[in-house]
Design a protein around this nucleic acid. Sequence first.
DNA 1: TAGTGATTTCAGAAATTTCTGAAATCACAG
DNA 2: CTGTGATTTCAGAAATTTCTGAAATCACTA
Lengths: 192, 192
Amino acid sequence: MNLPPLVQSFVLHFGEMGSRWGINRTVGQIYALLFVSPAPVCAEEIAESLGISRSNVSMSLRELQAWNLVILKHKPDDRRDFFTTPDDVWHILRTLAEERKKREVDPTLSVLREILMQRPASEAERHAQQRMSEMHTLIEQLTHWYEDVKQLETERLATLLSLGAKVTKLLEAKDRVVSLGRSRRPNPANKS
Amino acid sequence: MNLPPLVQSFVLHFGEMGSRWGINRTVGQIYALLFVSPAPVCAEEIAESLGISRSNVSMSLRELQAWNLVILKHKPDDRRDFFTTPDDVWHILRTLAEERKKREVDPTLSVLREILMQRPASEAERHAQQRMSEMHTLIEQLTHWYEDVKQLETERLATLLSLGAKVTKLLEAKDRVVSLGRSRRPNPANKS
DNA sequence: TAGTGATTTCAGAAATTTCTGAAATCACAG
DNA sequence: CTGTGATTTCAGAAATTTCTGAAATCACTA
């Protein structure tokens, strides 16, 4: 591997990290490299920079493309493909979320639904279904929320983010206003 | 593997899924099994149910404990350890988030910070730092938000969740009220 | 159509991860 | 202590994943 030391640390870290996710080391490294490169990079150069085989680069790029995480570029009078990452980090975040949902959450939801359709044949199965249903409900809530907020423009999303838990303050305020409007019933305090 | 068919589907799916995260198949299966079991299960029984070796169970349980995902129980007059999962799915979600943050996000943040401290020795390094700084900023925003909302009681969190993007409506309302209060300047529309 | 360089594919090699059985350790009871 | 059963450890076996080099494919040009 032959990279500026500062870039190398980053690339190596992403390689390590990759393994902790389902992603393999090389894929992580390539992504990191593209992310910090000032200009699109061709496959040959990636192989050289990271000291890995050309074919490995080819397969890993294919993987990254399947994740929608790289962009293909071309130079005039050059047949080779050059690769970059999108440069808006928010955009990258969205892609990542979307892809992970597609691969991890959706299949789980559909397995859960399938199982929940079936008739339990024993007390053990009844209980299992009960638990799975709790899990199913939670995941559905989370994905609904996600589907909802992912529509927001980045700027609005960022505002919401920076507001953090303070939105609950707003919520309380609203509650107060609304209940005042409807009558003068005090805070409903719906403790479950 | 010798389980009610409905439980078996769930366990197998979690095994598969486990691999897509960094978690290995057996660990995923054991977790799934414990999650749906009506009562705490001992190691021997796990091994039997899943058809894996006793020692594998031991190691996998250790892994799950490191993730804070299982609870140890004891029966009177029985030396064996019995295992369950916490039963509140929200609680499980929080644990999962916390542990993943600890293992995946925090180390990345610290690597980024470290690199950003250094002086770039070339234009390439300067640009790389610029990119890493964007990433760093984004991750920091996300973790701040997370630290913030994780304090909320579950019920409040659920409310927020079900509200989804509609909170922005509230936000707009607030903006209107505030700017009305300050003067009668119309919506600032702070497009970046 | 043949030639050229870029890219992909793929069978097997290399590396890594997971899993097992045997032995060690532990915790307690007699 | 000594015996008993539960649990853990760990070296190596088995399985899986990753990576490579050689060959095939592809997209062009002359």
